[in-house]
Design a protein around this nucleic acid. Structure first.
Length: 287
DNA sequence: CAAATTTGACCTCA
DNA sequence: TGAGGTCAAATTTG
């Protein structure tokens, strides 16, 4: 769906319109999240959020395709919310347990379908704090896959985990797959998230975007957003020197963010996905 | 020193 | 038996 054949000005106009639509959707999402009384509210809010996220996802994918020289049609965000099924309040605990599959003992991890899967060109904060617990090279991937679990896995029995797989080098593209929903209470308040986004000027939108989900914790330390400590994803052997002071995730975030700027206008991703949803946080995993 | 990350070992499933 | 996912000791970071 690349549009190389379109006149440059026509393409620019399309980008502008798409960016505008995405930004509006982002605002809508922020408003939604901001007014959500309680993350565990079993109402329609999660459903509406999913819809908004899907809209954002579409905008982002389109912008991504429009701005990428490589054919990334297969790498586009599949469906930010597709597999999200917010359990009824009373079933939530059960859902969280099962969301991890049938793990009973170490190594036994038969998972259910991912709660979310998203691709993004940069790694951003989704409002949750993640703890990396492993990384591995997988058969069909050129890059390492990193495994993260919610930092509150033990203190709050939060079952949320996510896998981050780099799927493309240039421009950098990451696929984040979420499993389970957060049931921890330590998410960032919408105000903080908004504040943060506001302070990061342009990048503000980024964050929220795909991400979508709930949020939590800390804010963005030195890096633009986020915090979470996540994403370092693959080890970046070379060149981390510059980022040594940041949590792995942070430096990766920064790194990606910068790269992002070079490739695609940040706006495109702005959203970013990065946040990938995790940002998603917003969604909070329904949880 | 506590918390986070790294990394090799371990475990289960197909 | 290999691949994917997790554990946990060692190491690093703030």
């Amino acid at each position: 769906m690349r549009m190389e054949n379109h006149p440059s000005n026509g393409r620019r106009a399309m980008e502008e319109e798409l960016t505008k639509g995405r930004d509006i959707a982002n605002h809508l999402l922020e408003v939604l999240v901001d007014h959500k009384p309680n993350t565990h509210e079993g109402s329609m809010v999660p459903f509406v959020e999913d819809l908004v996220r899907n809209v954002l996802c579409s905008f982002t994918n389109t912008l991504l395709l429009l701005n990428t020289d490589n054919d990334v049609s297969n790498e586009v965000v599949k469906d930010v919310t597709s597999s999200v099924e917010c359990p009824k309040p009373q079933d939530r605990d059960e859902a969280c347990k099962s969301s991890f599959g049938t793990k009973i003992r170490r190594g036994c991890y038969k998972r259910n379908a991912p709660t979310w899967e998203t691709n993004s060109s940069i790694l951003m904060e989704d409002g949750y704090v993640w703890r990396k617990y492993g990384q591995k090279m997988t058969m069909n991937a050129k890059y390492l896959r990193s495994y993260y679990r919610c930092t509150h896995k033990y203190d709050e029995s939060c079952p949320a985990i996510k896998h981050v797989q780099r799927i493309q080098e240039d421009p950098p593209l990451y696929r984040t797959t979420y499993y389970g929903h957060h049931n921890c209470k330590t998410s960032l308040s919408p105000e903080i998230m908004l504040e943060h986004s506001a302070s990061s000027s342009d990048s503000s939108m980024f964050l929220s975007f795909s991400d979508t989900f709930p949020r939590k914790e800390h804010l963005f330390s030195s890096s633009l957003f986020s915090s979470t400590k996540e994403e370092p994803m693959e080890v970046i052997p070379e060149d981390n020197s510059v980022h040594n002071q940041l949590p792995s995730s942070d430096y990766l975030l920064l790194c990606d963010y910068e790269l992002d700027f070079n490739y695609s206008r940040h706006d495109m991703l702005s959203s970013n996905e990065s946040d990938q949803f995790d940002y998603g946080s917003s969604l909070d995993f329904c949880g």
